[in-house]
Amino acid sequence: MASGASDLVLIAYDGSDNAKRAIRHAGHFLSASRAIIVTAWEPLSRQAARISGLSGVMQPGWVPDTAAEDAALADARVVNEEGVRLAGEAGLRCEGHCIETVTTVWAAIVDAADEYDVSILVTGTRGATGIKALLHSSVADQVLKHCHRPVMIVPPCEG
Results as ranks from 00 to 15, higher is better:
98 C>I: 03
24 R>W: 08
149 R>L: 07
60 P>V: 10
118 V>A: 00
23 I>H: 03
49 A>C: 04
123 T>R: 03
154 V>P: 06
40 A>C: 12
75 D>S: 12
141 D>P: 00
147 C>Y: 00
75 D>R: 15
139 V>E: 12
95 E>H: 11
47 Q>N: 10
40 A>T: 07
21 R>F: 10
138 S>R: 10
48 A>P: 00
80 N>F: 06
76 A>G: 05
91 G>L: 10
135 L>K: 08
139 V>Q: 10
114 D>S: 05
22 A>H: 04
51 I>V: 15
74 A>I: 12
149 R>H: 08
141 D>S: 14
77 R>L: 08
106 W>S: 09
80 N>V: 04
59 Q>E: 12
58 M>S: 15
78 V>G: 09
61 G>I: 10
61 G>K: 13
67 A>C: 08
67 A>M: 11
123 T>K: 02
45 S>F: 05
13 Y>W: 12
131 I>M: 14
88 G>N: 11
61 G>Y: 11
157 C>M: 14
56 G>S: 11
14 D>G: 14
75 D>F: 07
60 P>K: 12
26 A>W: 08
42 E>K: 15
34 R>P: 03
40 A>V: 12
101 T>F: 03
138 S>F: 10
127 G>I: 08
9 V>I: 15
42 E>T: 15
156 P>N: 03
37 I>Y: 03
89 E>S: 11
85 R>W: 09
78 V>A: 15
24 R>D: 13
81 E>F: 02
37 I>F: 04
106 W>H: 13
51 I>G: 00
140 A>L: 10
143 V>N: 05
84 V>L: 04
105 V>F: 02
121 L>S: 02
80 N>P: 04
159 G>V: 13
105 V>M: 01
29 F>Y: 12
145 K>N: 08
58 M>Q: 13
76 A>Q: 06
55 S>D: 04
159 G>W: 09
31 S>F: 02
108 A>R: 01
92 L>V: 02
147 C>G: 07
110 V>S: 01
79 V>M: 06
60 P>Y: 09
23 I>V: 15
57 V>H: 12
112 A>C: 09
113 A>K: 01
5 A>H: 14
9 V>S: 03
9 V>F: 05
1 M>E: 07
69 E>N: 04
89 E>A: 15
122 V>A: 05
108 A>D: 01
149 R>S: 01
20 K>I: 04
131 I>K: 05
66 T>S: 14
25 H>F: 12
